[in-house]
Amino acid sequence: MRLVGLALVVAALIAAPGARALEVFACEPEWAALVRILLPEARITVATHAGQDPHEIEARPSLIAALRRADAAVCTGAGLEAGWLPMLQSRAANAKVQPGQPGMIEMARFTRLIDPRPASLSPFSGDVHPEGNPHFHLDPSRWPELARGLAQALTRLAPGHSTAMAERARAFEARWAERTRGWQARLAEAKRVRVAVQHTTFAYFFAFAGARVVADLEPKPGVPPTPGHLSATLGALRGAPPHAVWIATYQDARPARWLVGQMAGVRLVMLPATVDEAADESALVRWFDTLVGALAEVIAAVPAASLARSSGAAG
């Protein structure tokens, strides 16, 4: 009987929320940054970094151990981590971060995804996310709703911090609105820009900016570029070359380099698709500044004649 009592006390101590810092497993660095903004007290492990393709992460022992110790996991959802997170959840055997538990926070719940696709049964249709494009963290205008959603979700896990988190979310929204207006102003002419991409990673950023994506180097989502598809893409683009081929740093740059080399006056832009693992709000802002700056440079290099023609065509 005494043993049972002792066991209960130990269990209560282990389970007691608020008794120690919330241990957060962030699937991607952008969510680690948002947790730092809302709950600076949290202890955060970041599972991936900007140099990795977030679709292709090994469910390695170190990640299992980190998820085992977590009180909460903050992930993108929408199938982005389908290749590795379910394995981590199963191996970690941590009740708090299983699907449907309050500690399993999927950010996709707090925003509306673009480009949902009908599910495909074919093994030849690529790695399609039927839920929609999961790279929504690249749209700055979505961050206020994401911050609100995450603050609410974390409130359930750290009720003692509820007021502080709501306050931080509001302050973040105010600062962010100001910055978003600045970025929009710099990208006012972006609708004249045509870009070729590799995967739909930056789709939300271009949607935010208003730039047009005219080609994808991947023949199917998640399928690496093939020589046949590249030459077909080149053929289709020759008449009206894109102003830039825009890829993420984690991607194999060879296909993009080849394509850029085949056409005159096309810029190769290679940028991280997320922030550093240790990023806070200022690093998050700097990252968006870099993206906006790179697109602004592409806009500036678009010849005036082409601008006129494009706007004429657009009008």
Binding site: G51, Q52, I57, E58, Y250
Partner: peptide, 11 residues
């Protein structure tokens, strides 16, 4: 034992 440059196994 697995190795990938910078931990990016895709490429």
């Amino acid at each position: 034992w697995k190795w990938a440059p910078g931990g990016n196994a895709k490429n």
